[in-house]
Amino acid sequence: MLESLSSSLQNVFRSLRGYGKLNEKNVKDALREVRMALLEADVHFRVAKDFTKQVRDRCLGQDVLESVTPGQQIVKRVHEEMTELFGGAHTDFNLEDRPAGVMLLGLHGSGKTTTAGKLAHYWMSSGKSVVLAACDIRRPAAVEQLSTLAKQEGAACVAPREGDTVPDVAARARREASEQQADIVIYDTGGRFQIDEDLVHELEEIREAVQPADTVLVLDAAIGQESVEVARRFHEAVGLTGLILTKLDGDARGGAALSVHSMTGCPILMTGTGERPEDLEPFYPERMASRILGMGDVVSLVEKA
C-alpha cells in the first residue's frame, strides 16, 4: 500500500544525491516533484501545498544547508512533517463506559459492516464481549450481512423487528447489552452521503438514543480529493471522535490517509487491510510515515551522496 507515493518520493530523494550541496533552487525543484507525487497519490491539494511549504521552510534553515548530509536532513524533516500529518501519536477508542458504544458511519460501500465484524473479532479475541446492532434497514440484505458476520464471530446481533425505526434498534441493542453485561456495542449504520439531511438526522437520532462514546467515520482509502470534504462534513454534522481507513491493502496511493487528520483534527484509529475478520490494525502515525518513506532505504541512499 502507498507504494506509488513511496517510490515517487524515493526517486526525489535519490535525485537530491546528484546535487552535492543544497541551495534554495534545488530544494525548490525537489519539492515541486514532491508536491506532484503527493497530488498523484490523492493527497488533498491544500495539504500538499502546506506540506511542501513547511518542509521547504524547515529545509532552508542554515543547519540543513550547511550540514554535511543535507539530503538526510531533508528526509528527516519530511518524516517529521509526515508523522504530524498522520496525527502524531496513536489514539485508542474510548471504552470506559459499560457497555461502551461505538457507532460506525460513512459513505456507501466504504466498509462499515465488514469493519463492524472486524472490530467484534478484534475485541472478542482480547476477551471482551461484543453486541452488534444492525442499524441499516434500507440496503437489501444489510441486516443478513451483519448477522452472518456476528454468527461467525460468536457475537450477539440485534436486528430490527417489524416496524422498528433505526433508533429503536439501537436503543434495544444497548439495553440488551446492559442486561447481558456486555463490554461493547457496535452500531452499524446505513451508507449515506453527507449532504443528505434526512440521513444525517437519522445518525443524530441514533446518537441521542444511545450516546456512544465513539462516533467513527469509516472511509475508503482509495477516495480522491473529496476525502477531506467528506470527513469535514460528517464531523460538522455529527461530531466524529475518530476515523477508520479501509481497503489499505489494495490501494497503492491512499492520499486520504495523509489528508484527513490535518483537515479535521480527527485521529485515525485503525486501518483495514483485507476482507477477513482479522484484517484490522491499530494505526501508528510514526510507523506509517517510516513505511512510506522507506526510511532505512532512503537514509542509506542519501548517505551515499
Partner: peptide, 12 residues
C-alpha cells in the same frame, strides 16, 4: 467504478 475514487482508478 466508484466516482469518488481518485487517481487509483487507473491502476484499478
Amino acid at each position: 467504478l466508484d466516482a469518488s475514487i481518485g487517481q487509483n482508478a487507473v491502476a484499478q
